[in-house]
Design a protein around this nucleic acid. Structure first.
Length: 259
DNA sequence: ATGGCTGTCCAGGACAGA
């Protein structure tokens, strides 16, 4: 089974690219983030025509997540249990489904904006709620994974130049400690291989030639439990999808599982 | 072997992204 995660940065403007990529990659299960649409605008019919069911959690201009599957889709759950609010609102940033024998969460972790900003505290609360939500499945026997845009680079080598991130979000000790606590529930980082260069970056800013210069970050992650990680045959970042006009600023991370 | 931001909402500019 081929399973992937991709921050698509608007499913509306990239639906043709999405359908072409699904066909080209042969992906069975895809976790999507940053849909930037509401539930009514989600392209359910076009995906169904291509053989994919969808579990969607979206409410408009920002955020929005989904799980697409052509190998079955059951037990849909929307939102974290006891998830925190920002500005009095629970944003659509997490959705789970069971697909082809594996249970997956598609997550879009809050950005944090700046260290010390209320959004940064929200990010840490959100990651703590994610840990509590997934702990039971992480410790279970069924293949289970949390996939998505974590908005944290787990280690120094996951950014192109640490000096550029002095005082910035995404690389702080507290954010990394929150990921470590999440892994502590029984999850391990399924690190993909890059198709070019030495590091498996998954995001490159649109500005200043970051992609051609490979000034990237690894922030789109796959955290799998023992049953999931033990079934991994291969994992890679599909940087080809980051190329060309109309690309998302994130590339898909693709994982191949036995059976 | 690719691109110097981009998408959304609302009407040129703010806001968010990371």
């Amino acid at each position: 089974m081929r399973i992937a995660t991709w921050n698509i940065n608007s499913i509306t403007v990239r639906i043709d690219r999405l359908l072409a990529w699904l066909e080209r990659s042969g992906t069975d299960v895809l976790c999507l983030q940053e849909l930037k649409c509401d539930a009514a605008a989600f392209p359910t019919e076009r995906l169904r025509e291509h053989g994919y069911e969808a579990a969607v959690h979206a409410d408009g201009r920002w955020n929005g997540v989904a799980v697409l599957s052509r190998v079955g889709l059951t037990e849909v759950e929307t939102g974290l249990r006891a998830g925190p609010e920002f500005d009095g609102k629970a944003e659509p940033r997490a959705v789970a489904a069971t697909c082809g024998g594996a249970r997956v969460w598609s997550v879009y972790v809050p950005n944090g904006r700046e260290v010390g900003h209320p959004h940064f505290a929200y990010k840490l609360r959100w990651l703590a709620a994610l840990k509590d939500t997934v702990a039971q499945d992480a410790a279970g026997e069924r293949p289970f994974a949390v996939l998505g845009d974590f908005n944290v680079a787990p280690a120094d080598e996951d950014v192109y130049d640490l000096a550029q991130f002095e005082g910035a979000t995404h690389v702080t000790d507290v954010e990394r400690a929150a990921l470590e606590a999440l892994r502590g529930t029984g999850l391990s980082d399924v690190v993909p291989r890059p198709l070019k260069y030495d590091k498996p970056f998954t995001y490159w800013d649109y500005r200043q030639l970051c992609f051609p210069k490979n000034r990237g970050m690894r922030i789109d992650l796959v955290y799998g439990n023992a049953a999931f990680a033990g079934a991994v045959k291969d994992a890679y970042v599909d940087r080809e999808e980051r190329k060309g006009k109309g690309a998302s600023d994130h590339a898909p991370v693709v994982v191949d599982l036995d059976a």
